[in-house]
């Protein structure tokens, strides 16, 4: 799961889906522009830059300017995709995101690259595990975290067509395609990945396939785990979460993010206020120690084993 130069067989680096889709959309719609902070390479935008040199605005290492400029480009009628490492995009320019994009209501797409702990050993300065909690508070900002290459492409297309601010939280970590038939991307709606009625595992992004593996392991023990891909964190699919609470009585949340305030926080808030059930939150408790992405995932339970263990804990609490 480390950042490979090219993804291992059977796995995709979703940045390929991001740029392929963006280039295709940009060829059809000349309003689409990209704004970056010297992040052409890390965003895999070299091809876009070659094809549309005038439509890539590189402001250099200046994130506040980058986000403000994107609001101005939207004022001028462009559809800007701001693409930068999510740690800097969200942390450094949070006030610009709040005032210039969300409060002002500009049609800007914020694309957080290499989110979560993708930068592994580079450490917490380069991790983006706080972004869910920060951005979820803006009730008019759509927050989407695709789980695989297919969903990345669909989310980019949806964001381009949607009139309003969007945060797309992307990853560079190779992931498999989810094995779901007849998929249709629906922003704001949870996607059923695995059926079950004993516990619900709600996951997003890079952790959805791990939750699916956990559900298969639990199945072998006779535990039916419902797995929901909650690609849209904001607005949260409250209907699906409350149905999970009522129908399965125990919930596990899994996210490559802090367990405070993000997906786990959202689900805990909603269930506590409406239909209280045990909620086990799998994610990072705060700044993490030095380690590779693989090590961090395993150490903090973002693994089929860790998620299955959390499911058993949630069920155990529900029975008390």
């Amino acid at each position: 799961m480390a950042a490979h130069a090219s993804a291992p067989k059977g796995l995709s680096d979703c940045r390929e889906a991001w740029v392929t889709t963006l280039e295709s959309l940009a060829a059809e719609d000349d309003r689409i522009v990209v704004v970056v902070n010297d992040s052409v390479g890390s965003s895999k935008l070299g091809g876009f830059q070659k094809k549309f040199p005038d439509r890539l605005v590189n402001v250099g290492i200046a994130e506040q300017c980058m986000v403000g400029v994107s609001a101005g480009l939207a004022n001028g009628g462009r559809i800007p995709f701001v693409s930068a490492a999510s740690c800097f995009l969200t942390g450094r320019s949070l006030e610009q995101i709040k005032a210039d994009i969300v409060y002002a209501g500009f049609n800007v797409k914020l694309v957080g690259q290499s989110s979560g702990v993708a930068y592994g050993e580079l450490g917490p300065t380069h991790h983006s595990i706080e972004d869910f909690a920060w951005l979820r508070l803006f009730n008019t900002l759509t927050v989407i975290t695709p789980a695989d290459a297919w969903e990345t492409a669909e989310a980019v297309k949806w964001a381009a067509a949607h009139e309003g601010p969007v945060y797309l939280r992307l990853s560079r970590m190779p992931v498999p395609e989810l094995n779901i038939e007849n998929r249709v991307f629906r922003a704001g709606q949870a996607e059923l990945v695995h059926a079950g009625s004993d516990v619900t595992i709600i996951a997003c992004g890079t952790t959805v396939h791990l939750a699916a593996s956990a559900a298969e392991a639990l199945q072998a023990e006779g535990i039916g785990a419902r797995v929901l891909n909650m690609a849209t964190l904001n607005p949260l699919d409250e209907t699906a979460v409350l149905a999970a609470a009522r129908e399965t009585g125990a919930i596990v949340t899994v996210e490559e993010a802090s367990i405070r305030g993000g997906l786990g926080g959202a689900v805990a808030e909603l269930t506590a206020a409406n239909h209280a059930v045990p909620v086990e939150r799998v994610g990072f408790p705060g700044f993490v120690p030095t380690g590779s992405v693989d090590w961090l995932f395993k150490e903090f339970g973002l693994s089929p084993e860790g998620i299955a263990a959390a499911a058993r804990r949630a069920i155990g609490r529900a029975r008390k």
């Binding site: 300017c65 609001a71 480009l73 004022n75 001028g76 462009r78 210039d100």
Partner: peptide, 23 residues
């Protein structure tokens, strides 16, 4: 555009001017 927190107007104005430059 919405302003209030200081230091926001010039970046936004710069983006508007870049949009005019692009088009």
């Amino acid at each position: 555009t919405n302003t209030g927190p200081l230091g926001h107007g010039l970046p936004v104005a710069t983006g508007i001017a870049i949009s005019g430059q692009i088009t």
